[in-house]
Simulated scan of single mutants.
Amino acid sequence: MRVLLVDDEEPARRRLSRLLRGLPDVEVVGDAGDGEEALRRVEELRPDLLLLDVRMPGMDGLALAQRYRELPPLIFVTAHDDYAVRAFEAHAVDYLLKPVRPERLADALERARGRLLAKQAAVSRVLEAVAPVDSSCRIVTVSQGVFHFFDARSISRFWSSDKYTLFLAEQREQCTEESLTQLEERLRSHGFLRVHRGELIQLTHVKAVHSRNGEHEVELQDGQLARVSRRSASTLKAALGMKAR
């Protein structure tokens, strides 16, 4: 779970970061000191969760949550106990009082994880309804509650990073809920080939194949490079009509 910390006090951000490092499957991807900066960081980093202070200069945490309802799930972390009702009205996952106890933080993150899993299940149901896996080239991403659709035939490469599947489109890195294995199965008939456990490429977008010391790498027309496993090298060469050497 990718977390963004939003608090105008740097010591508070550092302490939260230390606490989060002790929790499994949690990554602090960045921080911000006020609401305006938080909005920019959300757009840039696309976190799964915000840990958000209430009182900050400029746009405070409550104003941010009330004004921008399509933000990722929120957990308020504050020294003030009199904003809880308004926080939950803004659909906060939880409301933690400083100094935050580690066990209380862990419980809050489990609640957030449950909300994210429920959202992913809803996305999967939408995918099944609008894009049958046996016939569609459609790739769907979700960002801040907005569904975005891409044609897989315009995509050169999908790759795995940690627990995510990424690809480049519209001059930026995108993230889809589907695994590489799922994409491999439904995009095979559209010219995609799995060349590495972490790489799925569009064969019609291959510009060159580089071989060095028995290692292979594919260069794609948009400049991306994809790793090729030793095991997949012969399959790739056959698919591209290359003579075996």
Rank of each mutant, 00 (worst) to 15 (best):
L4E: 00
L5T: 03
V6I: 13
V6P: 05
D7H: 05
E10D: 14
P11V: 01
A12I: 01
R13T: 00
R13S: 01
R14H: 05
R15D: 04
S17E: 06
S17I: 04
L19F: 05
L19R: 03
R21S: 08
L23W: 11
V26Q: 12
E27N: 06
V29M: 11
V29T: 08
G35P: 14
E36T: 10
E37W: 08
A38H: 13
V42W: 07
E43Y: 05
E43C: 05
E44N: 04
P47H: 14
D48W: 06
D48M: 11
D48G: 03
L49G: 06
L50D: 07
L52I: 14
L52C: 11
D53V: 09
M56F: 03
P57E: 07
R67G: 11
R69V: 15
R69K: 13
R69A: 05
L71N: 12
P73Q: 10
T78M: 08
A79E: 05
D82W: 10
Y83K: 12
A87V: 11
F88A: 00
E89P: 02
A90M: 15
A90S: 10
A90E: 14
V93L: 04
Y95T: 00
L96R: 05
K98M: 08
K98W: 04
V100T: 07
P102F: 08
P102K: 04
E103G: 02
R104I: 07
R104A: 01
L105A: 01
A108L: 00
L109K: 06
R111V: 02
A112N: 14
A112R: 12
A112F: 12
G114D: 06
L117D: 10
A118E: 15
K119A: 14
Q120D: 07
Q120W: 12
A121H: 13
A122Y: 09
R125I: 05
R125P: 05
V126T: 04
L127A: 03
E128Q: 13
P132A: 02
V133L: 14
S135P: 03
V140H: 08
V142I: 07
Q144L: 05
Q144R: 15
V146T: 11
F150N: 10
D151S: 07
D151A: 13
S154G: 12
S154T: 11
I155L: 02
R157A: 00
S160Q: 04
S160K: 05
S161G: 01
Y164Q: 02
T165Y: 03
A169H: 06
E173I: 02
C175K: 08
E177P: 01
E177A: 00
E177G: 00
S179I: 00
S179N: 02
S179Y: 03
Q182W: 10
L183P: 11
E185W: 12
E185G: 01
L187T: 01
H190A: 10
H190Y: 15
H196E: 00
H196Y: 02
R197E: 03
L200H: 02
Q202A: 09
L203P: 04
K207H: 12
A208V: 09
H210R: 12
N213M: 15
G214M: 09
G214A: 04
E215I: 15
E215W: 13
Q221W: 07
D222Q: 10
D222C: 04
D222L: 10
G223W: 08
R227G: 02
R230H: 05
S232A: 13
A233L: 13
S234H: 11
T235K: 15
A238S: 01
A239L: 13
A239H: 12
A239Y: 13
G241D: 10
M242L: 15
M242N: 09
K243D: 08
K243N: 03
K243L: 01
